[in-house]
Design a binder for these strands. Sequence first.
DNA 1: GGTTTGACCATAA
DNA 2: CTTATGGCCAAAC
Length: 116
Amino acid sequence: MEKRVVGPGFHAQVFAIVRRVPRGRVTTYGDVAKLLGSSRVARHVGYALAACMDRKVPWHRVVNGRGTPSPGADPTRPARQQSLLEKEGVRFDARGRIDLRLYRWVTKTRPRPRPR
DNA sequence: GGTTTGACCATAA
DNA sequence: CTTATGGCCAAAC
């Protein structure tokens, strides 16, 4: 159903957050969701990025909570994402995962309830 | 205004 | 490690 997005209110915030992510840094859907309002809108974060398709939004700097890019609808997306991130300096491990402990970017340093 | 969906997350088994 | 289940919420139909 969703496919085209024109001027969504929520998505605008998501784009704003993702746009603030500096190069060589990554963030998770859950984090962005919390930044938007401590809500569980994590799904909409990826949802917005899906609609974004391409833009000035570095969607490749956004990964899921486990540090693994999601396949989504296009199987080539994770591959491009890894390539872009590696070019920016992000290191992937053998499993294709990212060390969120090192690359997780947040606007405000907030206490983590449960660091793993 | 109800139904469907989705690039998620957390927890449990 | 994988699979299953629940939740939560905006946007499209």
